[in-house]
Design a protein around this nucleic acid. Structure first.
Lengths: 158, 158
DNA sequence: GTTGAAATCTTCGATGA
DNA sequence: TCATCGAAGATTTCAAC
């Protein structure tokens, strides 16, 4: 992965549904060369996929909840994480260090829907010990973008 | 927005970089009709953009932190939210109900980088009162997908 | 929404730096 | 090895219906 790959990825991070020729123009290469690089990045697993970003409000999904889910046994946390991941309204599930718990991000339409989900889907899982919910009322930023700075030694400073 | 629009969006949620003709085939319409619908959805703000999903590990971004940021004055929470949103490593900023606080999701490469960011970028903001950080070591699910069940305007009843 | 045609884009093999 | 060229085949896009 070189500087040109990074440039291509930067362009795609801003606008993924863009013609190859346009990417080629912006990096100053032939379209076929760009195509080959993108294909390689997909094959190598650097590019995992392409997503459309929808406006949640238009689908009655403007209520976000961050739920900390504690499990009875740390040994079962992976299984529980996978089970919770299968719930459609769940957008993220992470394993939190040092607390036998998962961080779960949920998108729903109403507090009622959240209540139902917490009780009938999450608390219903055997291994779940308890949940703690924080509700987000508005969002300032929400993105999957990764900073693509070619990391040099000097960002240890500051 | 009708059932066909939802079908189109479902296809795009699974694979955004797909030819229009292919979408047209799957919904059983002419490509031009699909194009027109997609353009309209973009204009209406239903579709906010197209993103590439990159593998964070390939860019040294596998450490996720959820930081609860408390502000001194609830009145300044919007300004603080906007300021924190400008930090590149910050992927999400939400306003948490009932606690004069923001939920901030950060992606970094190392605990050192997180420390630097917390001290020099976040705590440095005048209005920030305190922060509380939880570190995620692994991820089970991470997606921006929204469930697209056909819930239209009139489902206030329920 | 459809059709059809022109413009544009994708893709691949051959070739060159 | 990696990029480019060029041409065939697909796709996008727009106007007419």
């Amino acid at each position: 992965m070189d500087a040109i790959d990074l440039k291509i990825l930067k362009i795609l991070q801003n606008k993924a549904r863009i013609p190859n020729v346009e990417v080629a123009r912006q990096v100053g290469m032939a379209p076929s060369a760009v195509l080959e690089r993108i294909k390689k990045l997909e094959l190598q697993g650097v590019i995992q996929g392409y997503e459309v970003r929808l406006n949640p409000e238009r689908f009655n999904r403007s209520l976000i909840a961050f739920v900390t889910v504690r499990v009875r046994e740390i040994l079962s946390i992976r299984k529980t994480g996978r089970e919770i991941s299968e719930i459609e309204a769940v957008q993220e599930v992470h394993f939190l260090a040092g607390s036998d718990a998962l961080m779960v991000k949920i998108r729903v339409s109403t507090p009622q829907e959240l209540e139902t989900l917490l009780i009938t889907k999450i608390a219903a899982i055997q291994e779940v010990l308890s949940t703690e919910t924080q509700i987000a009322l508005s969002t300032f930023k929400e993105s999957a973008k990764i900073p693509l700075n070619p990391r040099s030694k000097k960002n240890k400073e500051n």
